[in-house]
Design a protein around this nucleic acid. Structure first.
Lengths: 352, 352
DNA sequence: AGACGTCGTGAGAGCGCTCTCGGTGAGAGC
DNA sequence: GCTCTCACCGAGAGCGCTCTCACGACGTCT
């Protein structure tokens, strides 16, 4: 069964060993049904005896496909590896890709020249299509790839939403839901620490917050909005500003759990109790949320599902290139924990 | 300059547009010096005008090389993405790979069948060689790949150390150094929380601890050794056991920073002050070490350098396949912080 | 002036595979 | 007994590239 050679085995040799032509051997290996059981068995035995593995380059050249897709992540590697988002996304992608025997290739361009490399890499036919995530807004790459006829799927909301396949999480609805929950818990002065305003997720979560307030009939107040940057320290800083500007606030919606850690610290330092004085809801449902003091309520995104959906969209696009771009919107779920427990004094049932 | 077509451009078309033969065009693109300036210019202009990108499959088939290497990580994706080791390793690898215009392909086999996939992937010529890290001991993959004539470099200490190229960090020396530092700080009853005994790093760090004690003339005491598992909770548990078995201990050498977090928690809960009552030194110099209470002394490994060295070894092996396996041992550095400050009462200068 | 590089070039083979096309033999249908 | 499927198979083209080889055009040396 095992091979003990150092030299490459070709299909020709397998065919010879099996006593058939190269064409028949190829048919067996591509599981073409038009082969007799005898021939099939002979080829399979010869292949396994010789330790044959089809040469990827030859196959790719003949078929025009590579059976691989690229996941292009526009994020510094340090962040990439710290962020629990990616293992979940990759698991989702893997679910559908491995079932179709396709490889996932991770590319993390760090610089502008890296991005050019990625374009060349993809255009060179290394992969059959590209999945793009955390794409800076108005980045030229998707249009470039599309102009080369390469299937593309974007994770998140792209700038020109209609031109490309994309799957997004409904950040607006998720955030509005979080605010509604705070309102239902008897909170009335609800602040927010936003994400970066230059990324769609940041924008959408802010919009959701505003819509949530409006839906509850609460007044908009710009002093209740403070910009964060998706970092822990940024969250702490924003929270300190909020406490100065609006000391009477009784709840905060934070656009990411990482920032929420900073928020909790700042509240603790300021002597505010959570959730008695101030309720906090985060976003992302980071695994650490459950371990925080107090355990953090958070909006959970269906990341695995997002991965699965992205992979499906891409495979469809590879298979039928002329299909118009599609958009998939996934819904979130609010994980309620102690950090947003209702105020004890005031009755809960006022709203919702 | 920009292209505006959806169809693939071939070298033939570039050659035609430039008014030269395919051979000359190819020479330009492979930067063969034997081309006249005129022809070179013409080809370059035609290529950029048509947005030409060489087809990888064609090139690979003709050259037998793919200009890519695989980084095979035997680790669950969740751990992979949580571990600060990998971004540092990848940065180091990238340093030398990108300078040679080679791609890094990340493979993270999760199951036994995934490992088979990896073997096939590599054997199919997708990559010119493989870098293997956190390889379970006695895993068959390196031998399998080697028998196929595929260059391999292992990160860490492989089971059959002499058969394969590998680069390792001197865990023994690093651990011994940490113990020496504790001794120099006036500590005399030094415990250790080990890593997993089934991985080389765990074994070596324990050995370094033992050698450090012996070098200082301190007695070996098995009750001062408690097995951890490289997790935070495992560290806390091990520390609690140690406190029961040897309440008089005045220092702990912990085989990883993550476990050290648990150790610090357990010590805090037990009412021991760090470093006044118990000094602690960790391993890995995780970025969080500096943010702990108190800031954690830790053994820093030259991970980036390890990556660079691995890449160099692999490229050498790709270039000259018959070279015998080489071994590179890298040294560590001890980052001294407050968690291992010397005891105030006893004078420091007793040893070293 | 002839012999001998050197330089730039094109023709063409060949890398390992898939896939179309045409052919062969066995069985079904008349 | 003849044709007509139909299942199976082999020959061979061709995917896009690199690289060897041979060749013409110069320059140089004797």
């Amino acid at each position: 069964m095992k091979d003990f050679h150092g030299t490459k085995v070709t299909l020709e040799e397998v065919a010879q060993a099996a006593g058939v032509s190269r064409a028949t051997a190829s048919r067996v290996l591509t599981s073409d049904p038009r082969v007799s059981p005898d021939a099939r068995r002979a080829v399979e035995r010869a292949a396994s005896k010789l330790g044959y593995v089809p040469n990827q380059a030859g196959r790719a050249l003949a078929t025009g496909r590579s059976d691989a897709v690229a996941l292009v992540v526009f994020e510094p590697t340090t962040l990439l590896f710290g962020d629990p988002f990616f293992p979940r996304l990759i698991r989702g992608l893997g679910d559908v890709l491995t079932s179709r025997d396709m490889q996932l290739i991770l590319l993390a361009p760090q610089t502008a020249s890296d991005a050019d490399r990625v374009e060349r890499y993809v255009a060179a036919g290394h992969v059959d299509g590209a999945l793009l995530v955390s794409l800076p807004s108005a980045h030229p790459l998707p249009a470039r790839l599309a102009s080369r006829g390469i299937p593309v799927v974007i994770g998140g909301r792209p700038t020109e939403a209609d031109r490309f396949n994309h799957v997004d999480v409904d950040n607006v609805a998720g955030s509005a839901r979080a605010v509604a929950h705070l309102v239902a818990g008897g909170r009335r002065t609800i602040a927010t620490v936003t994400g970066r305003k230059d990324v769609p997720a940041g924008q959408d979560r802010l919009r959701g917050y505003q819509e949530g307030l409006k839906a509850a009939g609460l007044p908009a107040d710009d002093a209740l909005i403070e910009a964060g940057d998706f970092t822990r320290d940024g969250g702490a800083r924003a929270m300190r500003f909020l406490l100065v500007k609006r000391p009477q606030l009784d709840a905060v919606f934070v656009a990411s759990d990482l920032m929420a850690v900073g928020v909790l610290e700042a509240l603790h330092q300021a002597g505010r109790r959570v959730p008695e004085d101030v309720a906090v809801v985060g976003y992302d449902d980071d695994p650490m949320a459950i371990g925080l003091q107090p355990p953090l309520s958070s909006v959970r995104q269906p990341i695995e599902e997002m991965g699965r959906e992205m992979a499906r969209l891409l495979l469809d696009a590879v298979h039928s290139p002329d299909r118009p771009p599609r958009k998939v919107l996934l819904t979130t779920r609010l994980e309620v924990r102690f950090s947003s427990a209702p105020v004890a004094s005031k009755p809960t049932g006022e709203a919702v």
